[in-house]
Design a protein around this nucleic acid. Structure first.
Length: 419
RNA sequence: GGAGAGAUGGCCGAGCUGGUCGAAGGCGCUCGACUCGAAAUCGAGUAGGCCGUGAUGAGCGGUCUCGUGGGUUCGAAUCCCACUCUCUCCGCCA
């Protein structure tokens, strides 16, 4: 709040770069009013406290002060009135504040849309097939390892069953990723709740603005998590961490639930866009001065998964117009998918700077002993369903079978080929 | 789900017949003294938000915070109400 007040131009510029039409005039006006009321009411409270103390002293001395009490009764009534107005202003301000997106980092390219994102690097070469490769949904059904049909029957559109080696493969990918990050990249695994409360959703920035993207438990302020980012980042909500513990690195498997409002008609087939999918998430809490370096490391950690699996990918940096609401900078990792004849997002690695930390109240004690906001980061490491889709499509053979990447075989009892 | 107990500072734990209580005491931590060094001992310090002032620093002043929200009162950690959470016992359950 203070930052917005003192740097309205910076925030306004950032909003414009993101292509937002929001203006801050209303905010600044309300804030001015709020502070005036606050100053007034605090002066009155000060007087009340002083006089009440005096009354206490008198009573102790055996005297009475009825006229003082009467005066204070009236003062208290006025205080209550102004407090009411103050709270109203405060609420209005909070609402505006919670809808203001993060300020993009200076290294983020300015742009309007997805088309202005910049490719940072490309790894591996898409394989040349000497036959026509099948999309993973056809492969999966032919191999009887995916069953979209019955997923639709049992639940609805955008739900699926994995069966047999399909189910084992999904599980193998999860375990492989978790083992890699815990043993090679020093992340501490957590297994979070898949349902969180409203405060947590506000903390990471999903609420209040994006309520329609979420599944909410009927009659309760509980939500299905859209990503493990939410419970894991909120692990330390309203805490002051020991600075010596930073950076804190967590990885977490979770199912993810997304309403996909507004995605009707997009990626309707296969594992790409489901209402429920699995993901291994990487989350970091670090000192402000380290966060951009930590973002690079986190992105490498995610890329490493694809490298070991031998799946071609590229990394793009999102432009200001495509950047998520909470992020200051984001790298998307996109895996090659033959059925798309292109690269498809499989991980999104973001530095949120102090945006989530401010909303969630996550701080650390700095060298001078003062509480300071941490920076938070997270990234998929990786989306499991999309990884399985990429394996099926990139590793398929002309006879319809799929060669299992070496690294996964230990997780499948040595199985080298499905089909 | 039924019955009861409780929620206080980094931790433990007083206060709860309402009034200098943001809060005794202990532990922990930081600094200092002692020591060649350490331990022990002694001394000092040790929450956060917001507002004002100031340089968006330090400091100072004010205000709020004793689970959360409301109420009573001149005044509430202390009294009343609601909610949340924790613990114990019973029932049920993976």
């Amino acid at each position: 709040m203070k930052f917005v007040r003192n740097n309205p131009q910076v925030v306004q510029d950032a909003l414009l770069k993101r292509g937002s039409a929001v203006t801050l005039d209303e905010f600044l006006k309300l804030d001015q009013q709020r502070r005036e009321k606050l100053f007034l009411v605090e002066q009155m409270k000060n007087r009340r406290n002083l006089v009440s103390e005096e009354i206490g002293r008198l009573k102790k001395a055996g005297k009475d002060a009825p006229e003082m009490q009467l005066e204070m009764r009236e003062l208290s009534r006025q205080i209550k009135e102004i407090d009411e107005v103050y709270k109203d202003l405060e609420n209005k301000l909070q609402r505006i504040l919670l809808d203001i997106p993060n300020i993009p980092h200076e290294t983020v390219p300015v742009g309007q849309s997805e088309a202005d994102n910049q490719v940072v690097r490309t790894w591996g070469k898409p394989r040349e097939f000497d036959f026509t490769p099948k999309p993973h949904w056809d492969l999966g059904e032919a191999l009887d390892i995916l069953d979209f049909e019955r997923g639709g029957k049992v639940t609805g559109a955008r739900f699926t069953f994995y069966k047999g080696f399909g189910a084992s493969l999904e599980r193998a990918v999860i375990n492989f990723m978790l083992d890699l990050h815990t043993s090679q990249h020093n992340y501490v695994e957590v297994f979070p709740p898949f349902i969180v409360n409203r405060e947590s959703m506000i903390g990471t920035g999903q609420l209040p603005k994006f309520a329609e993207d979420m599944f909410k438990i009927e009659g309760q302020e509980y939500y299905l998590i859209p990503t493990a980012e939410v419970p894991v980042t909120n692990l330390y909500r309203n805490e002051i961490l020991d600075g010596a513990r930073l950076p804190i690195l967590h990885c977490a498997y979770s199912a993810c639930f997304r309403a996909e409002a507004g995605a009707a008609g997009r990626d309707t087939r296969g594992l790409i866009r489901l209402h429920q999918f699995n993901k291994v998430e990487l989350v970091k809490f670090c000192r402000p001065e380290d966060s951009y370096e930590e973002l690079e490391k986190l992105t490498w950690n995610a890329e490493r998964v694809l490298q070991i699996l031998g799946l071609p990918y590229r990394v793009v940096v999102l432009c200001t117009g495509d950047l998520g609401f909470s992020a200051a900078k984001t790298y998307d990792i996109e895996v090659w998918l033959p059925s798309y004849q292109g690269y498809k997002e499989i991980s999104s690695c973001s530095n949120f700077a102090d945006f989530q930390a401010r909303r969630a109240g996550i701080r650390f004690r700095n060298a001078r002993g003062k509480a300071e906001l941490v920076h938070t980061l997270n990234g998929s490491g990786l989306a499991v369903g999309r990884t399985v889709a990429a394996i099926l499509e990139n590793c398929q053979e002309s006879d319809g079978s799929v060669t299992v990447p070496e690294a996964l075989r230990p997780y499948l009892g040595g199985l080298a080929r499905i089909g």
